[in-house]
Design a protein around this nucleic acid. Structure first.
Lengths: 366, 366
DNA sequence: GTGAAAGCGCTAACAT
DNA sequence: ATGTTAGCGCTTTCAC
């Protein structure tokens, strides 16, 4: 079933190296005539190169290792999709390992990838925070995608959290709110600090007074948002709008408002952060700031391929920005019910609509 | 940085093959003495095998190719996680390709994986429906994970849809409902047919009359569920409970009920199917039947490894069953608000709680 | 422009 | 129980 280079060479009446040069588009000079002949023979005989043999010789595998926190986490799949799309276009494969935030597993993963001679590594949320910690574990280029923590600009794709928080806060201010509360994540997270900065910057720029009691801290979960919402509702001068540092806490706060007999957005407007899928399903659907996960993935793959091709080890990274998605929870649009399509099936839809068909469901054969 | 087998052999004073036999736990007889010495030397010198060289020689890569519909689809990540957990425990790696339901991409992917000499393939929702279509594209073993369509039992992991639909229907019947409507998916999908069968079987077994007008068809989306819900509400003798063939349509139906001024579950109870993440976030949280995606992934990996190890090409597959998750939409439990934890972060939680720490957030260094 | 020789690092057969 | 020989399939010198 499998035909090898030597057979192509023999069939074309040339030596093996010549056949190799023709089939790899080598820059080595050769007559257009023999090249064509070799390619024709290879095509006819259905030649497929043994990539393992090639890798052993060239020490390149065209494979990138992806060490991710956990593929079940909400933003990992879109980041992976972004990475894979860029890699595939350049002829690269990827292999994925879940680290589960375990530094031992992560180190083993780096070692395994070394042994398989991958060409580079992308860390998506790593236990490691800086390049120097990785540098002595592998001599391959690597890149970080850090959403929650990061402490370096080199080789790192990160989110402009300040910008995102300003988008959210500014949107509420633009709707006329000047009593805007903020439900933050836990204090010690970089993302929390940055989003708080953005919230305060935007208020300051608009000359809206900052009230410390308007800043509550949640645990990123719906329950924490609910509790924070109750606290805010209990204030003597309660806010007319709430920006929550993620959609889960936004949903929790919204339910606290509803349970207090108030309405969103009429009594208190809500804006979330992340654009989780459920944000469009709950009622009212939550206005939010996207986390541009696919773009982060794409940028990380581009950066890594750049490092590989330039034979560099370090390069300044990229900061990406989310955008505002206006839904019903902020009062900027009318309340009529709009169902948005399932994001996850867009590929399926595009395919089906392109072809106008889907494979028939055959009868059971057994 | 990299030390090779020949250096270990020299340092231990043995030949290269002897060193190889010691380090690969070969069954070839050898003195425990030299084996220990070689292992000690290898450990001391930090020997790491070049897996590419080994693969070229053995024609095994310990890598499985995963061709998935689209990693962004809701059930793909948990299926992948299940696969990866089983593979990792057996020392296997995986490489993932998105087919986007495109038969051309899928065929290219099979070819690419062949060239990389992977040991087997798992198709997660393939354009191909039967083994024979794949058989002439690769000589490696392969397995299907088919959730929506399938037409064979061999090499296929599938869901017992009839069982799941009976769980949902039976739960509503058990709560005293005898006017239970069913919002199905599009008619021509295997999953739709099977779930309808389960619904009817359960009604029949409980001697609950079947009313054709109680069966509506949606498009798997919230909008379709909403429309179907309106239709059911408009019936002269309307149902007191609705089972929807997925959670999105269940949510849509629930909103139709709310918009008609009725309540869930007091006026009309709802059960969904899939256990999508949003089912626990909407209010009331949706009672549903899980799609056991991780288990499907695990079973598919086990089946494939079995085929590889037994050098077989065909084996009967496995049918997995979901289970009922009771929440607020069916009326079986009281209405108090319960926030469930984020599924995706459980690994992170377990880690954090195990260690009691999370890496400190350092100050920005640049 | 083409071919001959060498070798990537490892393991499997066959000696002894 | 150990070593010698061979070779997986390919690409890269280096001759010519």
């Amino acid at each position: 079933m499998t035909v090898k280079l030597s057979e192509i060479a023999k069939a074309a009446g040339v030596s093996v190296p010549t056949a190799s040069r023709a089939l790899t588009n080598s820059s080595h000079p050769m007559s257009a005539d023999t090249r064509e002949r070799i390619l024709a023979v290879a095509r006819e005989m259905g030649y497929q190169p043994n990539l393992i043999a090639r890798s052993l010789r060239t020490d390149r595998t065209n494979t990138i290792g992806l060490i991710v926190e956990n593929i079940l986490s909400p933003f990992i799949p879109p980041i992976l999709r972004g990475i894979q799309d860029v890699l595939r276009a350049e002829g690269y494969f990827s292999t994925i390992i879940n680290s589960d935030w375990d530094p031992v597993i992560e180190s083993e993963a780096i070692n395994d990838l070394n042994n398989r001679k991958i060409d580079g590594i992308i860390f998506v949320e790593s236990w490691h925070r800086s390049s120097k910690e990785i540098r002595d574990k592998t001599d391959k280029p690597f890149v970080f995608v850090h959403r929650l923590f990061h402490n370096q600009l080199e080789n790192t794709i990160r989110v402009d959290e300040i910008y995102g928080a300003r988008l959210a806060t500014g949107h509420l201010a633009g709707l006329g709110h000047c009593k805007i509360a903020y439900i933050n994540g836990p204090k010690d997270w970089d993302a929390s600090k940055k989003r708080l900065q953005g919230y305060r910057q935007e208020l300051a720029e608009r000359n809206i007074p900052f009230y410390p009691e308007f800043v509550q801290h949640g645990d990123w979960e719906a329950g924490g948002g609910y509790a924070a919402g109750q606290t805010l509702l209990g204030l003597p001068d309660r806010p007319t709008a709430i920006f929550a540092a993620n959609d889960l806490m936004a949903a929790g706060a919204m339910y606290a408002i509803q349970d207090a007999g108030l309405r969103t957005p009429q009594d208190i407007a809500i804006v979330g952060y992340d654009d989780r899928y459920f944000a469009r399903i709950v009622r009212p659907a939550i206005t939010t700031v996207t986390l541009p996960a696919e773009e982060m993935g794409q940028e990380s793959a581009r950066l890594l391929l750049h490092l590989i091709q330039q034979q560099k080890t370090t390069e300044i990274g990229v900061e990406v920005r989310g955008k505002l998605i206006v839904r019903q929870s902020c009062g900027a649009v009318d309340q009529k019910l709009v169902f948005e399509d399932e994001q996850g099936s867009r590929a399926w839809r595009s395919k089906r609509s392109r072809e106008g068909v889907f494979p028939d469901s055959e009868e059971e054969t057994t």
